[in-house]
Design a protein around this nucleic acid. Structure first.
Lengths: 209, 209
DNA sequence: GAATGCTTGTTAAATTCTTGACAATCCCTT
DNA sequence: AAGGGATTGTCAAGAATTTAACAAGCATTC
């Protein structure tokens, strides 16, 4: 069994997919699944699934397959959803609201506790049960609650300065929805840039083929 | 020069990234860029950029680099943004609104002409200058306007039946934001499933490492 | 409880992808 | 107009990834 840090990026990228399909299977009350069956659902190969899962140890049983709940738990724990990362969102425009209500932060180990905005019309609104605070309260809030993840849903121009401020306040990881790549030159700061538009371009590409 | 259909998926997936960085460069009024410089910005290697671009023919010049606008145009045309795909959106909740206002459909060869919803409170609203119509008008609209792309921002349970209906009405491609994989068993129907949550899981994974 | 049939973990081969290297060639300066 | 410097296109080596194959082992049936 390899150490986690030896796992290739290609494998890691597939883990959330497995996780999601296993969640569906749990909802369907299925108990077990074979690599063959899962591969058919996911449109991949059984070989790849077995190879991937084996990076983390043998969870399956010959002649039986994989126990869905157990495998779901293991992958979840590899991905870190059993943690409790304090999470904040910056920006409560359309995008911030959509992300807040669409994503199950709780299920992913993220406790979304505050949303900040600069627009007086938006401050005070409630999104998915969370009140939108003024950006002026950001510093105080961070000092008291020490969030480690920040979701950035604000205009391009402000993103960089807000991110820098948040790093000073102890934020370690950024989920960036501004449509440019946030490139912070700090060690140990983790950024995931979301490229929403890219997949539409993939669609137009495939559509014309 | 290889035929487009020979281009590997890995290369294609990087094209939207190049496209986006070139757009930034145009905004900065830069005229030319070398593979080395672009690689530094994008945190990749010059070799890969040259290899990728060469799949489509030699756009660069020795000793000079690449003309930014020309390259932007070429990649855009490879991706199909010079088409005019009639596009509709189904679902004008938080997510539909966010996607409508966040994505530059026009810039990507997609003409978003109508949004449909089932909720009487939402029907009649205007999102990014487009009026939200009742889902009851969907059939009539499609027969008159023949959209080829549909963006699906509606609840999981309704997605499949709506998609099937749209296929009957001539829609060829789907950009699916429902958080499960839309798996249509039809030939020539193209689906891009957006997995928003996956990148948050990647973030929690990296954060715990 | 033995036999049959599945399905895994694992190995090795095949394929694909990435990187490094360099000749060819174009720009730019003088 | 010639020479120096830069940068491409391309080839080939090296890595990484994916696929195929199969022995080992468990479940299920009879």
């Amino acid at each position: 069994m390899a150490k986690n840090s030896d796992i290739s990026a290609s494998v890691i990228k597939r883990l959330p997919r497995y996780y999601s399909y296993l969640e569906d299977l749990i909802e369907e009350n299925a108990e077990r699944i074979s690599s063959k069956e899962l591969a058919a659902r996911m449109k991949t190969t059984a070989s790849q699934i077995r190879q991937d899962l084996n990076c983390f140890g043998g969870f399956g049983q010959q002649g039986y397959g994989y126990n869905i709940k157990a495998l779901h738990n293991v992958i979840g724990s590899i991905l870190g959803v059993d943690k409790e990362y304090q999470t904040i969102m910056i920006g409560a425009g359309n995008l911030g609201k959509a992300v807040t209500s669409q994503i199950s932060f709780e299920k992913k180990g993220c406790r979304l506790t505050a949303i900040f905005d600069i627009d007086p019309d938006i401050i005070g609104q409630t999104v998915a049960g969370i009140k939108v605070l003024s950006i002026d309260e950001l510093e105080k809030f961070c000092k008291e609650n020490l969030p480690s993840i920040a979701v950035l849903c604000l205009p391009k121009d402000n993103t960089f300065s807000v991110a820098k401020k948040l790093i000073d306040l102890g934020v370690k990881s950024f989920w960036n929805f501004s449509h440019f790549d946030l490139n912070l030159h700090f060690d140990n700061i983790i950024v995931e840039n979301v490229h929403l538009g890219d997949s539409l371009l993939m669609l137009t590409y495939k559509t014309q083929q």
